[in-house]
């Protein structure tokens, strides 16, 4: 009897410790989403009522679909180019080349510095009077300043700038987790450096790298400050949602809510799919 009580008491304490965490989870996350969900079924500007109009309007509008496509293009493209850039970077940095600590620190900067400032700096750097164009125009075949700001390619570049560190750091830590003796064993067995990379290093780190690139995908999908400032006419979902509220008086709360719900569902669906693919790879 006493023992049962003790056990009960023990469990009760555990749940009591978790209470604040769940309070914040429900109060600041779950409940707001519920409110958004309810709002998304309200006719615009009314306090009650039920309608699917907000979803239908958004999803049937070709511009609405373009926004979704753009969001995916940016997220997937960013993930791809981050991988393309991070793997060589991590391979170089793991060899502890001279100054590798400095370059490691550099890879952290986009994570630590407010995204807004990164965006502003990139706009200045790639602008028509920025250093990039000054350098480019020193080349013989470049006569006009290259337009990078407010183009899709430019936006993608800025995204990669801001979000590659997730991929780079996980790639680096995956590489550093490898047993170097395995590569030595490969070399002794007759594999040249390219074969060691292809048959031994890449297959070993790929699960970790892909898991890390999920973070890049996730944050790129939800990116807000960068496209808000540097996107120009390219507005992914997050910016479009904000515009529904900020550019109209009264604000389009219902339309924005419907978009937010769509965005949340797409994000969760994409993540689940990605994770499932990853698991399958690992099981195999």
């Amino acid at each position: 009897m006493l023992q049962t009580w003790r056990k009960y008491e023990h469990n009760a304490t555990t749940w009591l410790l978790l209470l604040p965490a769940f309070a914040s989870f429900f109060g600041l996350f779950a409940y707001p989403i519920l409110v958004t969900l309810i709002q998304s079924f309200r006719p615009e500007g009314q306090a009650d009522g039920f309608t699917f109009e907000n979803y239908i309007n958004f999803l049937s509008d070709p511009r609405g679909r373009d926004v979704i496509v753009l969001t995916f293009v940016l997220a997937i493209g960013t993930t791809f180019f981050s991988l393309l850039f991070s793997i060589p970077l991590a391979l170089i940095l793991r060899d502890k080349v001279r100054g590798h600590r400095f370059f490691r620190l550099l890879a952290l900067i986009p994570l630590m510095v407010p995204g807004l400032i990164g965006a502003l700096g990139l706009l200045l750097f790639f602008g028509s009077r920025g250093w990039f164009n000054l350098a480019a125009q020193a080349l013989p075949f470049v006569t006009e300043p290259l337009t990078i700001n407010y183009t899709l390619q430019g936006l993608m570049l800025f995204y990669v700038w801001l979000y590659f560190p997730y991929t780079a750091l996980t790639t680096l830590s995956a590489l550093e987790g490898l047993d170097r003796a395995v590569e030595e064993a490969g070399a002794v067995a007759g594999a040249n450096p390219r074969q060691v990379l292809r048959y031994l290093i890449i297959p070993q780190i790929i699960p970790g790298v892909l898991a890390g690139s999920v973070l890049t995908f996730m944050t790129a999908f939800g990116a807000f400050s960068i496209p808000l400032i540097t996107g120009g006419d390219y507005r992914p979902l997050s910016v479009q949602i904000y515009k529904e509220i900020s550019s109209f008086i009264p604000a389009h709360w219902s339309a924005a809510s419907a978009m937010a719900i769509v965005m949340g569902i797409l994000q969760v669906a994409a993540l689940t799919l990605y994770m499932r693919l990853l698991r399958q790879r690992q099981v195999r």
Partner: peptide, 20 residues
Amino acid sequence: LPTHQRQLGMVFQNFALFPH
């Protein structure tokens, strides 16, 4: 001569098998 051209066989302390 680079390692991979030396035609050696080697057994390692921590085995160094290819885990994948």
